[in-house]
Design a protein around this nucleic acid. Structure first.
Length: 635
RNA sequence: GCCGAUGUGGCUCAGUGGCAGAGCAGCUGAUUCGUAAUCAGCAGGUCGCCGGUUCGAAUCCGGCCAUCGGCUCCA
């Protein structure tokens, strides 16, 4: 007999060889029915596993993230089985679970289209209805290679060949279908209930541009239809928050065919932008920065010196002036270097923090452009901090604090990554290691969790990246802090030290918003267009009920204008319900309805875009309230 | 850049070989109304662009451009 301990502390004895699913059934049939996978001795295990040793057991269902991932992974296998049935010459690549579903990559002579989804889903449902047990088998390397080679599964063969010598090679079988897989899986195909294929995409084998492009089919799955409906509904809602759509609907910004990747900012979008910049300038002044502006076009020599010519050429635009080569700046740093060099600097001046709202242009591949999130011209809220080596950690920590101050103000949650030396980088490994360690130390001293992103640093230095989420949960890098020992070297930057001699400063490149454009994109989606009042392009709209109140309405308008509140009046001859609807759709924070009663009492009937009708109150009172809200940058 | 899909009025979309349509928005007029759409009328289109097939192309074919979803790449 074996002893099994459960999560609640209970211990029970079972005969050797019992499956984990049978154990679950003995405890509760309901639990067994909802079970997806087991956690045995802390490791995920198939419910079909026969127990051979004492251990702790936890049975988890779809509500557990680990189980959800197994459920989707099994769904991917069913997708592959269906595709193999329908197009037998298809070769299988990989099929993992992902955040909200799964995908499988195929190499097939058939080109999949969305019209195939119905057919594939029907076949998947047949496989689910057949309730094939999903059986794990372990093979030795030679047998596994032979097995997949015979079936012409060249990608599987490649995967096996690259598995480490000691790796256990397992396959999972369901009906006629066998796939190389570490597992675990649900015990049988019937455990899957509702599946839906969602999209198609090309994807390079092993994620490398040099390899063949495979066809990826994305899907998702749930144990209940209602959960799928809920998911699809949320997706629809998220699409309504898409900044490209809201940008147009609210008259904020637009990207046109005439300028792919070059966004236009409309009057209302400019208000948001200018408010963000105003806040930025205030905060940076307080944090000891001084602002500069460097040219958009600078000579080729400069870019050769900085290393951009060698390392960043494919992303740059060029022009000729009087037969001389010039480049449109893709980064602000070289210009910032030249500014530093205009004077001799004493160690007493350091850290020297120079900030620049710099418009940069980068040639991005056409396929990556995405509204304001990924463009070819954007404004970085850049700064270059020149400092003594012993100031590095404190300066990095100062920037981290500033990022947090900004992001918290908008109620953003963010995650942090540390990107290390890329393939095409300048400088020695020693310098890179020193710089990377400094960034890591600053993060650790701040107690921030971070993920290491190997090889993703800038060509001149490692970086800390701050990522924000859009409405569809895609993450975008916004803030970044990059430590650079190389540019100061290349530009021969110096300061006069205490000893009277020349020394080399260290430099930090950093942005908080990242790009104003991207940040506004994220902001728009985050707030669903309902910007906090301090940012809202129109903060108040006055809605007279009839023409009789137009004079009073205009008086209210003037009074609010005198307080620098962005206010307008809707004096069209429409019913108040119509005006309210339009005001709501424009996400205007406050609609002030003025009728005879208000005109008589000098009051306004306040309607908040989220809280609805707040009732009448004296205009003075409203003024005080909204001014406080704006000054406090309340979200 | 690569894979797939899409492109019809400002917006959302119908039209799949035979006279370019609807709703919303816009304009004009009427209406003067109390918390999410008042009524009527008018105007608005090189059907992404270029070429081909055809008596005839928004519709079929080819090329290009842009957009969308991914991949790769990055703020």
């Amino acid at each position: 007999m074996l002893k099994i301990e459960f999560k609640n502390g209970d211990q029970r004895e079972y005969p050797e060889g019992i499956t984990l699913l049978q154990v679950a059934e003995e405890i509760s049939t309901k639990m067994a029915k909802n079970a997806v996978v087991a956690v045995f001795n802390g490791e995920l295990a198939d419910l079909n596993t026969r127990v051979q040793e004492d251990g702790s057991l936890e049975i988890i269902g779809f509500e557990d993230e680990r189980a959800r991932s197994v459920y989707r992974h099994s769904s991917a296998h069913v997708l592959a089985q269906a595709v193999k049935r329908l197009w037998p010459d298809t070769k299988l690549a990989i099929g993992p679970s992902i955040d909200k579903g799964f995908y499988y990559d195929f190499d097939s002579s058939h080109t999949f289209t969305p019209d195939d989804f119905k057919l594939i889903e029907d076949e998947m449902n047949k496989i689910i209805d057949a309730d094939y047990p999903i059986i794990r088998k372990e093979l030795n390397r030679d047998d596994a290679l032979k097995f997949f080679a015979e079936r012409n599964e060249v990608y599987k063969v490649e995967l096996i060949e690259e598995l480490p010598e000691e790796a256990v090679i397992s396959v999972y079988q369901q009906g006629e279908f066998v796939d190389l897989c570490a597992g675990p899986h649900v015990p049988s195909t019937g455990r899957l209930k509702v599946i839906k294929l969602t999209s198609l995409a090309g994807a390079y084998w092993r994620g490398s541009e040099d390899n063949k492009m495979l066809q990826r089919i994305y899907g998702t799955s749930f144990p209940q239809k209602a959960m799928l409906d809920d998911y699809l509904h949320k997706l629809e809602e998220a699409k309504k928050r898409d900044h490209r759509r809201l940008g147009r609907e609210l008259g904020l910004f637009v990207v046109l065919e005439e300028g792919p990747g070059f966004p236009f900012f409309l009057p209302k979008g400019m208000i948001i932008r200018n408010e963000l910049e105003k806040f930025w300038r205030e905060e940076h002044r307080k944090a000891g920065y001084h602002e500069i502006r460097t040219p958009i076009i600078l000579s080729r020599d400069l870019w050769e010196k900085s290393g951009h010519w060698e390392h960043y050429k494919e992303n740059m635009y060029f022009t000729k002036i009087d037969e001389q080569d010039y480049a449109i700046k893709p980064m602000n740093c070289p210009g910032g270097m030249l500014v530093y060099k205009q004077n001799l600097h004493s160690y007493r001046e350091l850290p020297l923090r120079t900030a620049e709202m710099g418009l940069v242009h980068r040639h991005e591949l056409s396929g990556v452009l995405h509204g304001l999130m990924r463009v070819r011209a954007f404004t970085q809220d850049d700064a270059h901090i020149f400092m003594l080596p012993e100031q590095i950690i404190d300066e990095i920590k100062g920037v981290i604090d500033l990022v947090d101050r900004f992001y918290s103000l908008f109620g953003f949650t963010y995650h942090v990554e540390l990107s290390t030396k890329p393939e095409k980088a300048m400088g020695s490994d020693e310098i890179w290691e020193m710089a990377t360690k400094a960034l890591a130390r600053a993060l650790e001293e701040k107690g921030l969790d971070y993920k290491v992103n190997e090889g993703d640093g800038a060509f001149y230095g490692p970086k800390i990246d701050f990522h924000l989420r859009d409405s569809l949960d895609r993450t975008w890098q916004c803030g970044t802090i990059q430590l650079d020992f190389l540019m100061p070297e290349k530009f021969d930057l110096t300061y006069i030290g205490e000893d009277g001699g020349k020394h080399r400063p260290v430099m930090l490149h950093r942005v908080i918003y990242g790009s104003i454009e991207r940040f506004i994109g994220i902001l728009t989606e985050h707030f669903g267009g309902a910007f906090p009042t301090w940012l809202a392009p129109v903060q108040v709209r006055i809605l007279p009920i009839t023409e009789r109140q137009h004079d009073y309405g205009r008086k209210v308008l003037r009074e609010l204008e005198n307080e620098d509140i962005r206010v307008e009046i809707d004096d069209r001859s429409e019913k108040v319900g119509y005006k309210i609807r339009e005001g709501q759709m424009q996400r205007i924070p406050y609609l002030l309805i003025v009728g005879d009663r208000e005109a008589e009492q000098g009051s306004v009937a306040v309607r908040h875009r989220k809280q609805g009708d707040l009732g009448p109150r004296p205009l003075q009172e409203f003024k005080v309230m909204i001014k406080e809200e704006i000054a406090g940058k309340v979200i």
